[in-house]
Design a protein around this nucleic acid. Sequence first.
DNA 1: CTTGTTTTTGCATAAAAGTGAATGATTTTG
DNA 2: CAAAATCATTCACTTTTATGCAAAAACAAG
Lengths: 251, 251
Amino acid sequence: MLTQERQKLIENYVNQHELCRVCDLSKLTATSESTIRRDLIRMEEKGLVRRVHGGAQSVKKLAHDVSQHIRFTMNHDDKVRIARYAVEHYVHENDYLFIDAGTTAYEMVPFLANVAGITIVTNGIETTLSAVGHGINTMLLGGKIKEDTHAVIGQFAIEQLQSMNFAASFIGTNGIDHNGNLTTPDPEEAAIKKQAIACADHTYVLTDETKIGERNFAVFGNVKHLTVITNKLKVQSKKILPAKVNLKEAK
Amino acid sequence: MLTQERQKLIENYVNQHELCRVCDLSKLTATSESTIRRDLIRMEEKGLVRRVHGGAQSVKKLAHDVSQHIRFTMNHDDKVRIARYAVEHYVHENDYLFIDAGTTAYEMVPFLANVAGITIVTNGIETTLSAVGHGINTMLLGGKIKEDTHAVIGQFAIEQLQSMNFAASFIGTNGIDHNGNLTTPDPEEAAIKKQAIACADHTYVLTDETKIGERNFAVFGNVKHLTVITNKLKVQSKKILPAKVNLKEAK
DNA sequence: CTTGTTTTTGCATAAAAGTGAATGATTTTG
DNA sequence: CAAAATCATTCACTTTTATGCAAAAACAAG
């Protein structure tokens, strides 16, 4: 057997099993463990696998990494504060809510779990998993999946939204500019947000201070019709915003 | 058991139970408490859990890592064989496919990643995450979420399916009885499967030997119109099946 | 086809890492 | 404060890994 094809076998097996022992690979390729170790050393140098004591691990990123990623995002504490404020002040029992994909709205889930009888609709896969795990009655929009944010987008999702009405929509944003325009880089995500706003009696925009003054490509709304929930702002941040914005600062 | 494997078990257990004792983890992994303590120290350094006197606490409320769970399900190797067989024999470049929620169909994803130009539609959240991670063009059905299986179900999903056509549907089952009826416990999941079968030029049922002879509440189809892909069967299993079933045994 | 060179392989052995039990220190609980 | 439980540390033991070396295989040139 050629070295290359053996290493290809090893790579596939490791990726398939995520984690395996040296002796498994030895049996798989009918070679000695020494050979496997030498292969693994070379393959690790090339970044094809990760070596661990006793075997090898796949380097391919899988689903579970994302939830971990969320935990380490910037301003996590602020986001939790904003999320709690939003739930405590604007969510009532038996509400139907739209919860946007994105990290700040995601942080609402544990607090929502304490409100009786609510139903949420979301386009965020991680938000869905967390909500289901917390026993919340959850609907997920269907459609294409954005690879980086794992948000559901596309025409299917928008059509589904059109047949729904919410007591409130909670939306994240990547920027609020001096005109009060709310923006996000992806027009398809913007389209979802726009529709979710249209379906709700009232919309709350969740954002931390770093987004204020930022502008992105796609505009999905303006603060003048909505309520903005944010953390305690510095004076210069407040100056950026339009005068009569409906602003709530969480704690 | 490999260290990584054990730590993953611990992580999931801690996350599921929010808080647990060292001796529980020791029993869970069949190792000494010393080993558990050493694991917990390392895991705490990585921020995976928080140590407390007597045990460990989850750092976040929930584990989303069902993909890990899937890997430890029964007959994993059989499922991988079946999944590979299915992809290698019945998937072609540029196909549009339906991939059912469920562990066997989930295993198809890594193999599908090697087929150019395919698009998959699925009602499985974990399947979606894995597929997106593998760079596959993926659509997720929208609707209610089943808490235990994380499958998308409900009228929304069925309506979405009705507007689609697939080259092939790959469906899992909880049982095939002596009449060739395919069954699953949940009528709502059955409804999705039924619709996915109706939308496809051809349907392949993926099942391992343990399901043969089993019956559940909801019937969603019959083998006589479909192709069954399974592992190498014992003679008595074959006897259970109807005579003229279109049966493929993976290796 | 033969010969000499290089690469790869498998085995032996020493080093390293992981494990489990014992012991005494520390923390919790009543 | 005392008893019970838990923890950190150490040590003997097992498993896994790295290294050196000789045999085997692959390769190249005459």
